[in-house]
Write a protein that binds this DNA or RNA. Structure first.
Lengths: 228, 228
DNA sequence: ACAGGAAAGTTTACACTGTTAACATAATGT
DNA sequence: ACATTATGTTAACAGTGTAAACTTTCCTGT
């Protein structure tokens, strides 16, 4: 476990591109192939886990069922993931990247700071509407999974850099009153998070309803920040 | 099961205050006593369940453990509660009353509509800080338990009558711009709910932090409503 | 007063869950 | 060729919620 990645990395070392013996090359390629297989398996399991998570929801997500669908015995997964929570954490991370990409795309869809923030809020709630189980896992159920950071860190630049930057841009145009940028960011985030939490919790109401409410909330908060 | 409550209610019928025979009176008192015992047991179990819920959190709440502490076999509770969720729902209802009482008290602590809403928001988050497991159960985990209502119904008069009334009072003084009262109520609720959800989810941060953020959020939203 | 029946509770059992330990086996490094 | 490591599997443990069958206790109608 220790030697394999080391020999692999030393193989990638440009100083020794072509190892001396053919046996060395074969060994390196073998290790690389095994590593690739391992990663492929991890990806496969992660995809199944993600599917089952959105299908059955967090509460009924079962490690054994994932193993069964993947074609392994229940305990086999423990070779690749520490435990159930570690597996879910990886699913989480996958979607965290996707989520911040969605927010970034929404941010780019407008130019004025206020419009950027409105678009972000809309995309934020839209994500929660489309992936309720995932939003729940990321932000409600297991906070350690989503982030081991404090709220300020998150708001500043860790995962929600786009939000913080847009708020900064708004502040530059005088759109923020007395509040500091981190505080304003947190307020905006918490407001939209409240709507997203409602989306996730009560899945009965139509999506448009929540989106309309998101608009109302966004303009209210932005107006409030301005005339603060 | 059918005859007992009927005879009891017919006993309470003012038309026949004193039943004819002594046997009838004895029978009625016996039924009443048994009913009282039953209610007392329910209360006992509910108190234990509530204690274990706040102690271990929702995820690790176990029906069997409640039964054990109450001194019953696991399946005995099924005579009094349909299933685990029904039991939790009753715990929920207990605290729902307490919660709305807290909000009402906060509302009475001030007179101006804006001050009333600020006080309610503070009390709201304070409740989440003090009873995270319960807030989670009531508003995050099992929405059907807290309420089978739509958001508008809740906001109007079902459980959050105090909130809706305060918003109405604010609207009367012209404190609300273009938004209608139900919408404004929902926005305010969602904003504070977002903070409460954060409190419940990441229990690491100090309470004062969240309370300060609650103030910032409240003034921002109220300002935003006014200059809408 | 006594048979009949409902109510309350217990034991047993089932189908699950996550997780650990012991074992098997195949691929690899020396 | 031998030892080791990686990758599985099976067996087992301690939990969980819940349903069915059985006991016991108490109440009721005749």
């Amino acid at each position: 476990m220790l030697t394999t990645p080391l020999s692999l990395s030393s193989d990638a070392d440009p100083a020794e591109r072509h190892p001396a013996t053919r046996a060395d090359r074969a060994r390196a390629r073998s290790a690389a192939r095994r590593e690739a297989e391992r990663l492929q398996l991890r990806d496969h399991v992660l995809q199944i886990a993600q599917r089952q998570l959105v299908a059955h929801g967090y509460q009924r997500f079962s490690l054994r069922e994932v193993a069964e669908e993947a074609g392994y015995s229940p305990t086999a997964l423990y070779r690749h993931f520490a435990d159930r929570d570690a597996l879910l954490k990886e699913v989480c991370n996958l979607y965290f990247a996707r989520f911040s990409a969605v927010l970034a795309a929404a941010d780019r869809s407008a130019s004025a700071p206020r419009a950027r923030l409105m678009a972000q809020a809309q995309a934020y709630v839209q994500f929660a509407i489309e992936n309720p189980a995932l939003y729940r896992l990321m932000f409600l159920e297991r906070p350690e999974m989503g982030m081991g950071l404090t709220m300020e860190e998150v708001a500043s630049d860790a995962g929600f850099g786009v939000l913080g930057q847009a708020v900064g841009a708004l502040a530059a145009t005088g759109g923020i009153g007395t509040l500091a940028v981190p505080q304003a960011t947190m307020v905006l985030w918490a407001g939209v998070h409240g709507l997203a939490a409602m989306v996730v919790t009560m899945n009965l109401l139509p999506a448009e309803h929540f989106l309309a409410m998101t608009r109302a909330m966004s303009v209210t908060m932005l107006d409030g920040l301005q005339h603060g």
